[in-house]
C-alpha cells in the first residue's frame, strides 16, 4: 500500500487558501509584495514585472515541507493531515507566525527578485511594478486536475490586469511563465503579451547592449539545471545558455538537460516530502563537479536548498556579474 499525504486534503487546503488569500499557502498577500521597496518602479506601466509570488512563497514552502517531511509515514501523519483540514489553519493568514519563517530566508528570495528588477533597469528595459496586480497564476489548479478552478482563477487574473490596462507582463519563474504563455490563451481570452526576464535580456544581447561589469575571468564554469517547464515544455533552455556564453561564461551540460532535463522533485514535496528530497539529492549528485550549479525556478531552488545542495539562482549569478 502506497502511503502519502492525502492529495485530497492537500488539494482542498490549496484551493481554500487561494480563495481566501489569493495564494496557495494562505500567506497574507501584502507580505509577499514588499521586495520592490526603494526601487521606485512605476505602478502604471503597461508592461509590468509579474512575479507570480512563487519566489516569495518559497521560504514558507520550505518550512511546511520540513514539517511534513518529519512526520511522513509516522504515527502522527494522520494527525498532521487532520491539522491541515482543521478550521484554525483555514483562517490561514494566521499561518505565517506559526511557521516562524526566518527573516533572512524571506530576504534571500526577495533579493533574487530585486536582482532581476535591477538587471532589467540596467538594461534600460521599460517596465513597472504594481503590488496590487502581482497575482498568483493559479497553475496548481491546473496541475491537480481542477481545470474549471484554473479557468476561473485565470480569467479573474486576466480581467484584473486588463482593467488596469496591462498589455505585457514580464515573468520570472517557469510555472507562471507556462501559465501565461500556454495555458492562459487556452483557458481564457487573454491577449496579454508575456516574456520572461531572460528573454528580454537575450534581446539586449542581440542589440549588443549587455556587457559584464565585473570580471568574468573569475567566474567558474556553470552547469544549468533546467526547470521542466522552461527546458521541456517551453523549449527555452537555449536562452540562458546564450546569455552566459555571450558573457564569456562556459556552460557544461549533462545528458539530462534541456529537453531531457530531470525533475528536481519539487512538485511532489507536499505529498511525499521524502521522495521529493531524494529526487533533489540524486539530481544534485548528477550535476555536481561540473561547475557552479545554477537553476532559475524558485521551486527547484528551494527544493535543492532543502537538501543542502549548493545551487544559486540564475538571477543571482547575473546580478553578481553586472549589477
Amino acid at each position: 500500500m502506497v502511503s502519502l499525504y492525502k492529495p485530497r486534503i492537500i488539494a482542498d487546503f490549496v484551493r481554500e487558501s487561494i480563495k481566501k488569500t489569493g495564494n496557495p499557502l494562505g500567506v497574507q498577500s501584502s507580505k509577499l509584495t514588499t521586495w520592490h521597496e526603494g526601487l521606485k518602479l512605476s505602478e502604471r506601466s503597461k508592461r509590468l514585472l509579474f512575479t507570480g509570488l512563487l519566489y516569495q512563497l518559497s521560504p514558507y514552502t520550505v518550512r511546511i515541507t520540513e514539517i511534513l517531511s518529519r512526520f511522513e509515514e509516522s504515527k502522527v501523519e494522520k494527525l498532521v493531515e487532520r491539522l491541515i483540514q482543521s478550521k484554525t489553519l483555514r483562517v490561514i493568514s494566521s499561518l505565517a507566525p506559526i511557521l516562524k519563517v526566518p527573516k533572512e530566508e524571506k530576504e534571500y528570495y526577495n533579493g533574487i527578485i530585486r536582482k532581476i528588477a535591477q538587471i532589467l533597469l540596467k538594461q534600460k528595459v521599460d517596465f513597472g511594478y504594481n503590488p496590487g496586480l502581482d497575482l498568483y497564476s493559479g497553475i496548481l489548479f491546473y496541475e491537480i486536475g481542477d481545470e474549471e478552478g484554473f479557468a476561473e482563477h485565470a480569467s479573474r487574473v486576466v480581467r484584473i490586469l486588463k482593467e488596469k490596462g496591462v498589455e505585457e507582463v514580464i515573468t520570472i519563474d517557469p510555472h507562471t511563465t507556462y501559465a501565461f504563455k500556454v495555458l492562459y490563451p487556452e483557458y481564457t481570452d487573454s491577449e496579454i503579451e508575456v516574456r520572461t526576464y531572460f528573454e528580454l535580456l537575450d534581446d539586449g544581447i542581440e542589440y549588443g547592449k549587455i556587457k559584464p561589469l565585473s570580471d568574468v575571468e573569475s567566474v567558474a564554469p556553470v552547469t544549468l539545471h533546467d526547470p521542466c517547464y522552461y527546458g521541456r515544455y517551453l523549449e527555452l533552455s537555449n536562452v540562458p545558455r546564450k546569455i552566459l556564453t555571450s558573457l564569456g561564461i562556459e556552460v557544461i551540460d549533462v545528458r539530462n538537460s534541456g529537453k531531457l532535463t530531470s525533475c528536481c522533485g519539487g512538485p511532489v514535496e507536499s505529498f511525499s516530502p521524502n521522495l521529493s528530497e531524494t529526487m533533489a539529492k540524486y539530481r544534485a549528485e548528477e550535476l555536481k563537479g561540473k561547475g557552479c550549479m545554477v537553476t532559475m525556478c524558485p521551486i527547484c531552488l528551494s527544493n535543492f536548498k532543502r537538501v543542502r545542495a549548493p545551487f544559486i539562482d540564475f538571477a543571482e549569478l547575473l546580478g553578481g556579474l553586472y549589477v
Binding site: V2, K6, P7, R8, C228, L260, P267
Partner: peptide, 20 residues
C-alpha cells in the same frame, strides 16, 4: 489502479516520459 487517486500525485508532471 489501486489507491487510484492518491497514486496519481506521485507524478511531478515533469514530462520526461512524453519526451522519450
Amino acid at each position: 489502479l489501486e489507491n487510484s487517486y492518491d497514486m496519481l500525485f506521485l507524478c511531478t508532471l515533469c514530462g520526461k516520459c512524453e519526451e522519450i
